[in-house]
Computed example of a mutant assay.
Amino acid sequence: MAKDGQGPDDPKGLIADAYRIDGIDKAECRSIFLDWALSLSGDTGPAIERLLVGRGDHPMTEVLREGLGEPVRTGRRGGRAARIER
């Protein structure tokens, strides 16, 4: 992928645009990241790794690195046994 344009890892150019926005904060980068992640199908990990190549200090870089982490599992989310009183 071109560092400053669209490619297979950033088909809408969302990540590239985030890097071009002056004064963008981490919250705005998270919103862009979510839109980007929902536009891809499958595992985003390899795409994130490719998008990080050559990127310096930027809020989007932090968000992309966080995107490589494992999702936090909060435990059991319910089911029949949780709804029935004992």
Rank of each mutant, 00 (worst) to 15 (best):
1 M>L: 12
3 K>T: 15
3 K>F: 12
3 K>P: 01
4 D>V: 13
6 Q>R: 12
7 G>N: 05
7 G>Y: 04
8 P>H: 10
9 D>M: 05
9 D>I: 07
10 D>Y: 00
11 P>A: 14
12 K>A: 13
12 K>P: 02
13 G>I: 03
13 G>P: 01
15 I>W: 00
15 I>H: 02
16 A>P: 04
16 A>Y: 04
17 D>W: 06
17 D>L: 13
19 Y>C: 03
20 R>L: 12
20 R>W: 00
21 I>D: 08
23 G>V: 04
23 G>C: 01
23 G>H: 08
23 G>L: 09
24 I>P: 04
27 A>F: 00
28 E>P: 01
28 E>H: 03
29 C>G: 01
32 I>G: 04
32 I>W: 02
33 F>E: 01
35 D>A: 15
36 W>E: 01
36 W>K: 08
37 A>E: 14
37 A>I: 12
40 L>S: 08
41 S>T: 15
42 G>I: 05
43 D>R: 06
43 D>W: 01
44 T>H: 13
44 T>A: 14
47 A>R: 11
47 A>S: 14
47 A>F: 11
48 I>Q: 00
48 I>M: 03
49 E>A: 10
49 E>I: 09
50 R>Q: 11
50 R>T: 13
50 R>W: 00
52 L>F: 07
53 V>R: 07
54 G>Y: 06
54 G>K: 05
55 R>Q: 06
57 D>W: 07
57 D>Y: 11
57 D>G: 09
58 H>F: 07
59 P>L: 01
61 T>G: 03
63 V>R: 02
64 L>H: 06
64 L>N: 00
65 R>E: 12
67 G>Q: 04
68 L>H: 12
68 L>M: 10
69 G>Y: 03
70 E>Y: 05
72 V>F: 09
73 R>D: 13
74 T>P: 02
75 G>S: 09
77 R>V: 08
78 G>I: 06
81 A>V: 11
81 A>L: 13
81 A>P: 02
81 A>K: 12
82 A>M: 10
84 I>L: 13
84 I>E: 14
85 E>P: 12
85 E>K: 15
